[in-house]
């Protein structure tokens, strides 16, 4: 494994964008985030299916009744469960986050002795990626 480059990161000022509250209740903010995430998940899936159907049809492999009557194997089930849980984490992350009253952004925007975070490195990013799961979205 390569080492992080010496100039690749320095302390930065975290803007705290996960704590913003715009609506009358932080939970309502979270619900809006959930709805937008669901939209993304729906489109990701639909776009993959469009690709899949186009590829299969171009190879002469697609017969719609095969899709309708397919019975998943135990391995399929295990993999799909993992994928479903990844999607749940991604979509509902906002609901699982502890809402913070007040406005972190206002403090950041004032710029008076703002708190700094150490540079993001591959370890932080890896932990985040792990939490997000195989496809990372």
């Amino acid at each position: 494994m390569t080492k992080p480059h010496t100039t690749a990161g320095t302390d930065f000022i975290d803007h705290g964008s996960d704590t913003y509250t715009f609506l009358q209740d932080p939970v309502v903010d979270a619900l809006v985030e959930v709805v937008v995430e669901l939209g993304a998940e729906t489109w990701i899936t639909r776009r993959r299916m469009l690709v899949l159907e186009r590829v299969m049809a171009s190879k002469g492999l697609l017969a719609p009744d095969l899709i309708e009557t397919y019975t998943p194997s135990p391995e399929d089930e295990a993999l799909w469960r993992q994928e479903r849980d990844r999607m749940l984490k991604s979509v509902y992350a906002a609901l699982a986050r502890r809402p913070v009253r007040g406005d972190a952004a206002a403090e950041r925007a004032k710029g008076a002795n703002p708190p700094k975070r150490p540079p993001l490195n591959a370890t932080d990013l890896t932990a985040r990626a792990k939490a997000l799961g195989p496809s990372g979205v």
Partner: peptide, 13 residues
């Protein structure tokens, strides 16, 4: 974190 880009321009490899 300009544009709330994680780590901004200087804090993310």
């Amino acid at each position: 974190e300009i544009h709330i880009q994680p780590g901004g321009y200087v804090g993310n490899e």
